[in-house]
Design a protein around this nucleic acid. Sequence first.
DNA 1: CGACTTTGACCAGCGC
DNA 2: GCGCTGGTCAAAGTCG
Length: 517
Amino acid sequence: MPPSCYPSRFCFVLFPGPRTTHASLLPVSFTFIFFVLPMDRPQDMALLRLRNPIKEVDFFSQNGRQDVTEAGAGVASPKGHQEEEEDALARGGASVNTGLYLLTVNSQASQAVVEEEKSKHKSQFSALRIELNRVRDENRRLRSMLDQLTESYTALHSQLLPAVQQKEHEIYRWQDGKTSVARQGESSAHQIMEHGPARMRMIHGNSEDGDGEHSSSLNIISSDRGIIPSAETQHSQVDGSSENPNLTQETSSPATPSDLSNRRARVSVRARSDAPMISDGCQWRKYGQKMAKGNPCPRAYYRCTMATGCQVRKQVQRCADDKTVLITTYEGKHNHPLPPAAKAMANTTSAAAAMLLSGSTTSKDSLVASANGFLHPHILYDSTMATLSASTSFPTITLDLTKSANPIQQLLQRAHPTVSPLQLPFPIYGLPQKLPTMVGPQTLQHGPRQQAVVESVTAAITTDPNFTAALTAAITSIMGAPTSTTGAGGSNVPSAGAHMVPGSPQLPKPCTTFSLN
DNA sequence: CGACTTTGACCAGCGC
DNA sequence: GCGCTGGTCAAAGTCG
Ligand SMILES: [Zn+2]
């Protein structure tokens, strides 16, 4: 769209208010077009065109701007602009301010001056009307495009849902045939793992193709079904928590497949920290420590002590390659209410289960949907941010927060290229949040100084281990929010469990790494 | 005294 | 079967 087509020109001409600065006028106006379009109906447009054409310009104005409505009322009377203008001129124009400098000198003005003004305003008005018609056409065209997109989306979605359900049904049937194997517990998982790394070919790894998110998803499905897709083999995760063969079983009731999957899902956080443990708001009791092979640093085992019987555990270990990196692996789901500071982190494991064990058929959809539109799919499937590995015995999400000075900003830029650096699409433990607006690139340019400040702040806060934990929790809680309607404290199975592929002998035990580089 | 940490023992899975 | 390894248990010790 050429700049001359920006409808904001009308805003500036008709409503020259103090807030219509050059920097903010265009994107804001464009945004309003964007949001208004799907709301009004064609008949409304027709009414607007018949009754009050200029009111259409109100779409581009800001809410609550009094001068806008006043000026709009003044200009867009039912008589039409030309008659209004002529009436004003005939009355001497004493009381009507159209914003177009239509006021004329009262009685002393000569007829020639009046005529000159009149013709000038007429030409202005005709130009405005032409412009208005053009914008109206543009509006109509955009709306038709939107309708087409909506129809396409609906059609695709209607096709996707049965396919997903069929796929899940097939997986369930496949697993039902393997019930005995699945019930044998972790041994089966290890048996699968024996074949898993050799069979598993995926993923996003270092694939540079643009539609990696689609192909990778399909590849995971294929791996589940025993088909070997053609992609590169993944490397082992640096996380020393690999090959976890055994975990405490819940003895109260026979574990459902969703329970098993949820208990096995892990969330691993890699963050630079000098502290022995990142504080995540929970209470932990250390119940063991072992020297892990290939790592001079011991691995500590903790379990949640905020309630008796809580199955949540975590492992803490320093990275063998970089001892400043603290690897914290969470597992399980709390069975008790949690303080707000710990709640987000607690959702992590549920999110991990939902994402990694719901099967690749639904993970992307559920995650994207659970992000409430805040997170773009690329944030999950960008080849540089998400890698999967079959090295671990349990599906693991690894949030790698060690690779960037200011990962949050890049994260946000990946997720929301149109979001101002000052605006977080989700609340992060008291950090200021603004709802993202679909602004144009101009907004991003108007604050190099602000951006520098933001970079400094993000660089500072992301070095805080507490912040990294909070960031991890925030992201994962967003991802898993719809999967657990009762929050982290509930002992319920995540709602996504209905779509989950449980315990998953068929799953290649992927390990997803979110790397904020 | 309760909560927590330490630490050796124990168990299970896996490879050889 | 044996040894290695990861994970857990539980008694003893520590701390506030
Ligand atoms: Zn807990």
